[in-house]
Simulated assay, not measured.
Amino acid sequence: MKDFFEGIQYLFEEILFIPYDAFRSMHSWWGANIINWIFFIIGAVAMVYWVLQLKKFNDNNEENKDVTAHSYL
């Protein structure tokens, strides 16, 4: 069982994180954090899209807002 977890450790540390090791050794802050900025932009765009969709459904009164509409209420 120990070999299984050491195999997972090897996979992540030695194979999957190779691009991140290259970013860590960069001398430019912007270059080293480009992946974080890309993820931030994707998340911000997704959040704006989600909020606009919620507003669209709310404006059309498509949601049943009765207190018995959802079983968890």
Score class of each variant (00 low, 15 high):
M1W: 08
M1N: 07
K2D: 15
K2W: 06
K2E: 06
D3C: 09
D3M: 11
D3I: 09
E6V: 04
E6I: 04
E6Y: 14
I8P: 00
I8E: 02
I8Y: 05
Q9I: 02
L11R: 05
L11W: 00
L11S: 04
F12L: 15
E13Q: 13
E13N: 15
E14Q: 11
E14H: 08
E14A: 06
E14P: 00
I15M: 04
I15A: 05
F17R: 13
I18G: 00
P19E: 04
P19S: 06
P19L: 04
Y20G: 02
D21C: 02
A22Y: 09
A22F: 03
F23C: 03
F23A: 13
R24C: 01
R24S: 00
S25F: 05
H27M: 07
S28Q: 04
W29T: 06
W30C: 03
W30H: 08
G31D: 00
A32L: 01
A32R: 12
N33R: 08
I34Y: 12
I34H: 12
I35Q: 12
I35R: 13
N36W: 03
N36Y: 08
N36Q: 12
W37I: 13
I38M: 06
I38V: 15
I38T: 09
I38Y: 05
F39V: 10
F39R: 11
F40T: 15
F40S: 14
F40D: 09
I41R: 04
A44K: 04
A44W: 08
A46T: 10
M47G: 09
V48D: 02
V48C: 06
Y49A: 14
W50T: 09
V51T: 12
V51C: 03
L52S: 05
L52I: 06
K55M: 12
K55L: 14
K56T: 05
K56D: 00
N58S: 08
D59Q: 12
D59S: 07
N60Q: 09
N60K: 08
N61R: 09
N61E: 13
E63A: 07
D66G: 11
D66A: 15
V67W: 07
V67M: 07
A69Q: 11
A69F: 03
A69T: 04
H70A: 13
H70N: 13
Y72I: 15
L73A: 07
L73S: 10
